[in-house]
Design a binder for these strands. Structure first.
Length: 482
RNA sequence: GGCCCCAUCGUCUAGUCAGGUCAGGACACCAGGUUUUCAUCCUGGCAACACGGGUUCGAAUCCCGUUGGGGUCACCA
């Protein structure tokens, strides 16, 4: 079996995209599983839109996810450079080769003529695309004119017949050649277009399987033609589905967060993202959908990718993140919160001390600070919620019980929680009030909310004195006439 | 609009290639249990083969058509 060589070839024209990570993940996993190579190639041939900061963003995001490349602009490798803007000579040489073999030709048409042509074609409701105007210029003449006229290089596409390939996921795909026009291979600025650079690089870098998004299907014939024109064996193509918005359209930042760093900053664990992304099209045979990266790599096969365009569902992402957070050790979780910048001004020691109270309640690393806020400062009291939960109890009685409770808790300081609980129950029973009421009142007094971590540990975390002060304050408030 | 891709619960999916278990799981939702609340955890429930033909003893599965959704038609990738 030949070596498995895969790649991800993002264009640094925007923030690192979740779709890039999705496709990268499959490519990385497959290479990894087969002890092959995974290449990160930067496709920065669009000089106007490509930016170095975006390229850095791609490295940062992939590193965050643990998707490490064997060859890349940063890591180097035997087939570099891996930044297309640094490979101009390679493309020029190959373009010349195609021109010489008659598979490509120089085109001197101006942007204006092309615009007019397009307008005319639209008006006539005819087929859009280049009309081959410069295709018949004698090669010698074209070469002469090229010395001082700006021009592009176009692929000379067969007008007849059709082009086919066997897609690993979709089987035989056949597209009539008349669907393709003579696509630009080299732009007037000398840079190659995607089609040209992509084919040349994949071949030279030894890529064995091209796993990419399905939006590339319509332009694959051009690539197949190019491989043929060069006399090269094309790689295996596997077109994976596109991630979708809720309305099924291609995922976009207008309708979904698409920036990988956004997810990091929102408190998602990288392993959550990897697990979730893997689930978009792939599934473990077992029932458990929560799995580790290594397990995925071990079982993954691109053949098993399902083809329906998966809707990116944040609800399930949140569940998965909570699941992963719960499985973390306390130390690990604390470190993630601190290292990730989610600790606010909590000291590491204090954070670690109270973290057990909140681990089960977090869906995001971001949840800790708001959840634990009551421990370090007087919380806003949810009086309305308390009133709702203690409807049948007179506020004055509640206040009275609260004072009583504070005294009892002082007496029972140092005793087991069970004993404290029993003592508090007595307070309620004495007044023929449901025990729940007193616990709820204490809970709101100490934590501010009707839903909180367990009461006694919360009191310990807040500090006994401070907790009792809060209890008395609430009692006073409730006793005051409305 | 032309071309191409796709089609199982609301969502992610198993099952489709080699037709034959009440179409399985997960998320969400609902109900119950545990918990002094919440969360966790446990139990149960709701919920799908887009439609129409054909082939077959038998179709989610194979074929055709329809419908629906998506992608693409740049000197962007």
């Amino acid at each position: 079996m030949t070596d498995v060589v895969t790649r991800i070839a993002p264009s640094p024209t925007g923030e690192a995209h979740v779709g890039t990570a999705y496709v990268a993940l499959f490519n990385w996993a497959w290479a990894h599983k087969n002890d092959g190579r995974f290449i990160l190639r930067i496709e920065d041939t669009d000089q106007a839109r490509s930016k170095r900061e975006y390229e850095d963003g791609i490295y940062e995001a992939l590193a965050w996810l643990g998707i490490e490349s064997d060859e890349s602009p940063a890591a180097g490798g035997a087939h570099g450079p891996y930044r297309q803007s640094e490979r101009s000579a390679v493309y020029a040489e190959h373009a010349a080769q195609l021109i010489a073999s008659g598979n490509a030709y120089r085109c001197f048409c101006t942007a204006e003529r092309l615009a007019e042509l397009r307008q005319f074609q639209k008006a006539a409701k005819g087929r859009l695309g280049y009309d081959g105007h410069c295709r018949d210029i004698a090669p010698a003449e074209a070469a002469e004119r090229a010395k001082n006229e700006t021009h592009v290089v176009r692929l000379a596409v067969d007008r007849e017949g059709s082009t086919r390939w066997h897609d690993l996921l979709r089987g035989e795909i056949v597209i009539a050649n008349e669907e393709d026009d003579d696509q630009e291979l080299v732009k007037s600025d000398g840079m190659p277009t995607y089609h040209m650079a992509n084919v040349v690089d994949d071949h030279m870098m030894g890529v064995s399987i091209v796993m990419r998004a399905e939006e590339w299907i319509p332009s694959t014939p051009k690539h197949v033609m190019l491989y043929a024109a060069f006399g090269w064996e094309p790689p295996t193509f596997a077109h994976v589905p596109l991630l979708r918005n809720r309305d099924k359209s291609k995922i976009s930042k207008r309708k979904n967060p698409t920036s990988l760093i956004w997810y990091r900053d929102a408190g998602y664990l990288p392993e959550t993202m990897v697990n979730f992304l893997a689930l978009q099209g792939w599934s473990p045979r077992e029932d458990d959908e929560e799995f580790a990266v290594a397990e995925f790599v071990n079982k993954f096969n691109p053949r098993d990718i399902s083809l329906g365009g998966p809707v990116f569902d944040m609800t399930k992402l949140d569940w998965l993140n909570g699941e992963k957070i719960r499985k973390l050790s306390l130390d690990d979780l604390a470190e993630r919160i601190i290292e990730g910048g989610f600790a606010g001004d909590w000291s590491p020691d204090h954070l670690r001390e109270v973290l057990p109270l909140f681990q089960d309640r977090m869906k995001s690393l971001k949840d800790f600070v708001p959840l634990a806020g009551y421990i370090r400062g007087r919380p806003e009291l949810d009086l309305e919620g308390l009133a709702k939960k203690t409807k049948k109890v007179d506020p004055a009685v509640l206040a009275d019980m609260l004072r009583d409770a504070a005294r009892r808790l002082e007496e029972f300081d140092g005793h087991a929680d069970e004993e404290k609980e029993a003592a508090l129950r007595l307070i309620a029973e004495k007044r023929e009030v449901k025990p729940g009421a007193i616990f709820m009142a204490l809970r709101v007094a100490v934590t501010g909310a009707t839903a909180s971590p367990p009461l006694f540990p919360s009191i310990d975390a807040v500090g006994f004195e401070e907790s009792m002060a809060r209890v008395r304050d609430l009692a006073e408030h409730l006793a005051a006439p409305a």
